[in-house]
């Protein structure tokens, strides 16, 4: 045999680790901010919602960046209904299209949702864009 004891150590370490390790490796959570744009449309008295995942505790910011026709809308942040039927709101504001975050809420990690809704001003249908910044 030509193998050296050094090779034995290597083989042993691999075998021992493979055979005995039961510890799961923790994965690091991202701490950088992310932004997505929620674009959709709805008819008079309607609403649209979308869920997203917050990876670490941080501020979630909502900005209504576009609405056509240009009407004031309600925008809110909340928790998704378990049956997927919408978004139960935590906080909401009524806003016109703007450039700075119009609603900011600190949120724990988890799956949350945003909702855009008619406050009685949508004539027939509105198309909107909502920027959502989160962690």
């Amino acid at each position: 045999m030509t193998h050296t004891p050094r090779l034995f150590f290597g083989v042993l370490a691999v075998l021992a680790a493979a055979g005995c390790s039961t510890t799961a490796s923790p994965t690091a959570a991202s701490s950088s901010a992310a932004t997505f744009t929620f674009t959709s449309s709805f008819t008079a008295n309607g609403s649209a919602s979308r869920s997203f995942e917050q990876l670490t505790t941080g501020v979630v910011g909502l900005t209504l960046t576009a609405a056509s026709p240009d009407v004031r809308l309600g925008i809110g942040l909340g928790i998704p209904r378990p049956d997927g039927s919408g978004c139960n709101l935590t906080r909401a504001v009524e806003v016109a299209v703007g450039g700075a975050p119009q609603l900011t809420v600190t949120a724990d990690p988890g799956v949350w949702c945003v909702r855009v809704y008619d406050i009685g001003l949508v004539p027939e249908r509105v198309t909107f864009a909502l920027d959502v910044s989160h962690f």
């Binding site: 045999m1 193998h3 050296t4 075998l15």
Partner: peptide, 11 residues
């Protein structure tokens, strides 16, 4: 103990 024997025993 020879190296060959040791190699066989390790697993």
């Amino acid at each position: 103990v020879t190296r060959r024997t040791l190699a066989a025993l390790i697993p």
